[in-house]
Nucleic acid binder design. Structure first.
Lengths: 196, 196
DNA sequence: CGAAACGTTGACCGTTTTCAATTACAGTGG
DNA sequence: CCACTGTAATTGAAAACGGTCAACGTTTCG
């Protein structure tokens, strides 16, 4: 997903944007003429349901595109708000599509990025479908660990990991404690070594 | 996702395949030279983790592609098995990529399909992240309902819905019963009308 | 026709959430 | 340099919720 740089958009005119926390980037129904890329911060995509409830559809973080799908639709179908102070760049959809259509290699690059996001999301989706916290945590660690024995160093806080796994941080800490007790993993701060 | 027909692959040489239930389509590590499309049945993509555990990464059903991501990688990174008797067609990756690179419009079509899958999956992902069964069910129904009052007719069994929502069917029925009791929805067989 | 799957509900059990409290640490302003 | 504030990390106890098991009627399909 970090490979989602501008390789395929090189040379196209860009605009910069800066939003404060909770500031609105666009709302559902608005004509979608530009595609956004998050430089720093995060954008929350929210869909307002018929009964007024809100469903968060996605949170686009630094180095991710915002609603790539809108590249292919006339209107945005979500509201977009900054989760925190955020800087973005944007491209004209029209010029981007024209660029792709006349430059297949760029289009393939873009498709490659979409496919990679899809693969990553499928992974997370299957993990979150697991019912027990231990399964989610262990699978997540295993998918990230490398080497013999498999090991990794976290690049974020455990609290953030808990959120990704759709667990409370308490549940995550307890799962980690169990893994440690059962000898399935050695965990020291952000360093993890899986056993067996 | 059903729009993921062969528009963008028209004219390219294709091969047909037929698998029995549990028959293997490919294994992780094998060179990925062809891209598969499910005509009928379903293909289960399984990743075997370092400790021998299996994680189902995805189930590709009729009218879906199998591991589009492998279009961009040398090797398959999952094992693929037929969930039931399944028929597929396949295309040479190389000819497909060449086709895309020289024909931007087709590449954009392909990207459009990937983006639509991504959007759909993000939706389901956010739903499954919800902790309470009622929230998952209600959000799922609201996203599908249309009209005034919002209503829908299921195109599948409630058991299949339960699986999509990562709930047991019992939990789903109880959630439906609660929605009915609270007056949030009128449910009769596969017909649902949301209230308020 | 019979078996398998679907639909539905109750009781009980296991796991997670919630609430609460404590320690540790990093950044901030006086 | 230090008290001060906010967040992360950690654990316990009680409450809420979904899973599992069980039972039963109904529908579907070979």
């Amino acid at each position: 997903m970090n490979s989602s740089t501008f390789r395929f958009a090189a040379g196209l005119p860009q605009r910069s944007h800066r939003l404060d926390a909770n500031e609105c980037l666009f709302v559902a129904g608005q004509r979608a003429t530009r595609l956004f890329y998050v430089r720093k911060g995060a954008i929350r995509l929210v869909r307002t349901l018929e009964n007024g409830a809100n469903a968060v559809m996605h949170v686009a973080r630094a180095h991710e595109w915002v609603a790539e799908a809108s590249l292919f639709s006339d209107k945005y179908h979500c509201d977009a708000f900054a989760d925190e102070p955020t800087t973005l760049v944007s491209l004209s959809k029209q010029s981007l599509i024209e660029h792709f259509e006349s430059n297949g290699k760029s289009a393939v690059e873009f498709a490659r990025m979409l496919a990679s996001q899809l693969r990553a999301l499928r992974q997370m989706h299957e993990i979150v479908r697991a019912r027990r916290a231990d399964d989610r945590v262990l699978t997540w660690l295993q998918l990230r660990a490398a080497g013999e024995p498999p090991a990794l160093v976290l690049d974020r806080t455990w609290t953030q990991v808990a959120d990704e796994l759709a667990l409370t941080r308490e549940a995550l800490y307890r799962a980690l404690a169990r893994l440690r007790r059962n000898g399935r993993a050695r965990i020291d701060g952000r360093h993890v070594v899986l056993q067996r």
